[in-house]
Design a protein around this nucleic acid. Sequence first.
RNA 1: GCUGGAGUGGCGGAAUUGGUAUACGCGCUGGUCUCAAAAACCAGUGUCCUUACGGGCGCGUGGGUUCGACUCCCACCUCCAGCACCA
Length: 824
Amino acid sequence: MPYTTHEIQRIESKWQSFWQKQKTFQVEADPAKKKFYCLEMFPYPSGRIHMGHVRNYTIADVVARFKMMQGYNVLHPIGYYAFGQPAENAAIKNNTDPGEWTYRCIEQMHNDFIKMGFSYDWDREIATCDEQYYKWNQWIFIQMFKKGLAYKKASPVNWCPSCETTLANEEVIDNKCWRCKNEVDQKNLEQWYLKITEYSEQLLKDLETLKNWPSRVCAMQENWIGKSYGVEMCFKEAKTGEVIPVFTTRPDTIFGATYVVLAPEHPLVARLVADTPKETEVFAFIEKTKNLSRFLRMSADQSKEGIFTGAYAVNPVNGEEIPIWVADYVLMEYGTGAIMAVPTHDQRDFLFAREHSLPMRIVIQDPQQPELAVEQMTEAFIGQGKLVDSGKFNGVHSEEAKQKIAQWMEGQGTGQMTVHWRLRDWLISRQRYWGTPIPMVYCQTCGVVPVSEQQLPVVLPKNIKITGEGGSPLARCQEFIDTPCPQCGAQARRETDTMATFFDSSWYYLRYGDAKNSECIFDVEKIQYWMPVDQYIGGIEHAILHLLYSRFFTKFLRDLGLLTVDEPFDRLLTQGMVLKDGDVMSKSRGNVVDPGSVIDRYGADTLRLFILFAAPPEDQLEWNDGAIDGAWKFLARVYNAARKSCRSVSSAVDPVSFDDEDQGLYREIHATVKKVTNDFSLDLKFNTAISQVMILMNRLEKFDASGSEQKQSLLNQAIETVVLLLSPIAPHLCEELWGDMGFSPSVMRASWPSYDEQALIQQTVLIVVQVNGKVRAKVEVAVDASEEELRKVILANAKISGYIGGKEIRKFIVVPNRLISIVV
RNA sequence: GCUGGAGUGGCGGAAUUGGUAUACGCGCUGGUCUCAAAAACCAGUGUCCUUACGGGCGCGUGGGUUCGACUCCCACCUCCAGCACCA
């Protein structure tokens, strides 16, 4: 058969049904076997797969298949991140049920995955919208509630007035609702939160143990958690003596504090201005900032507005009375909601002070401009230097002064060293339908009560009308709302909010290990066997939220005694995006290449090979219609070579009787096995692994095997090696060729080839000769030749002696088996 | 601004305990085959000078270390990504 689209389609469907029937990729936990857990981030079921999925899942598939051939018991599951807003939107738009829509998409994706030849254990396929899955969301929530980690509080949230729902920060784009494009408000609402901050310290510290994560992901998480060391200082209101705690990371600048600023929401503000002439004015200002959106207030380039309260605060280190202002650049959520302002050494304070003509005082001398006066400053000096105008700390270097002043204040009882975090608790309430119902009940006598665990799941009711008019659909479903109190049995009311879908994805990797368990969330021993995930692969867009939440859940479940690992994911690879004409593929740009049409024309193997060969997995990948022809052509050559040489000759080869040709091919076989094995094991550099297999192919195609039976055997060995090494990348074709060559299926059961270091040793080596740093000649010499011998050979070389030209040789440097550098 | 990363042919990209820059592939040029085309195969392909032999210059820019630098050091430029009034 010639290598045609038709032949490829025959081969691919043949092996896809073989794998299905044989359940080739089904696994069980077995402590007698060494395990490998290979995981990709599960997809949102949106319909057909796109190139991003193809890339992500092909990378994972190669890792999984490679590890299988290396003899590992490989867990390689897939599932669907099936709750969420897109399904609800589609339901509104098409007037269908979100569940129906979702399951239709899942079916399409499932079929696409089969067509790609992915090696999933289909018995573990999960969907988060399945009640057997989200039941355990509810169970986890209740465990958190019992430990005080799930709690309800009122706080300002993004609120879309037209959709009547809260929005996550990431759902607010340019201060507009991502769905209806209306302006978003701030609203104070009672919502459910998860106390992720309980784990701040561990989440930060354990980043250090994640040696096999990309450094930028760790850096992003570190920034997000945002630990800062500082001092909480007690300023006092001058008249009443009421304490105003202020947080600073720069206690060394305290002598330069010339005013204090409170956030507009600060509870003290109202008391300070009550019954004073400033009252009306200050309240007007607070009203004004309230109406400003969080988005506008938080943008750094916004001009800083503020107003004097008429009150004064006493600086604890020098007794100085300084004015108390209210300003929008101080945020209630961070620190204590109050700051001491040091305009000379903080840029924001500097701008604000200039704007409002507030006093300034230099307390740290800029070593570059020691004579600098306040009037000449054009910006704050935020660097380090010696303290001036700072009482008994004059002359102390600022870095040292941070410690000394903090300690001194602690001794005086006016300050305390503390730590502040940027990380906030996680708001998980959503006023939406297509999600996990939060399993809580409100009872008039018992208060807020969790649903009893025996009654889980709280099933999401079907046939709910989703109009898109706003508000929670469940809140309009009386049969759902009415329920007896789990504690006293009296008539009570269910929570109608659902969980943010990031909850669902924070632990799905645990469910795969025991996907069908109906008794408990998972069997502890099974999960102990499979965890941690050895290789996790997904997009960089999840660098913070999903990966941080998963780390949090892992630590929580560990503390419940269900897990023995501290971290869920050992190695992490963030794959790059697939571009076309320099842009990310997207429907709106109209530059989408549909994987289905590529598979129809070239087959899945060609697509897989191309996508791995075009770029290293972490880099962006530019789609190239021409280069996919190259991938096709290469597989055609493998096919033809295997068909041609797979005769029944297979006597052993004996390197002693090799001629130079044989020796060269033999060495290339072993060099290729070594290179591919290393590239697959360590950095997942599939592009260079493939190029090395191409080099071996180029060589074996030139090899003339007609001379002897041994030559034919050697050639067979070469082509067998190519088939084995390519089988994780182009599995359908390699299964077919493996069978054609007389081996029994599946090639996945064959063992990964090993290489012999002895075979890589060469008799002679090509040495480069440099004269005065320039390459002038290449000389073939025996391996490990002595300097003496080399000198003799090289100086006898006419070309070299021409460059030396009788001049004195000042240096003769030998790099063994590589190069000689002569200086004259 | 802060954090992380990247700059190599016409293109995607190789190469770092410092040792032949451009592996492998795409594209392009010429050839074989063919009535012709496609496919396939063979040869060539950084750039400048030279008919050729050969030589000069070349890994973002400028310096430095070294017999030797894509690789190490210093300074800078550009681009990408994330965070950003966080006190």
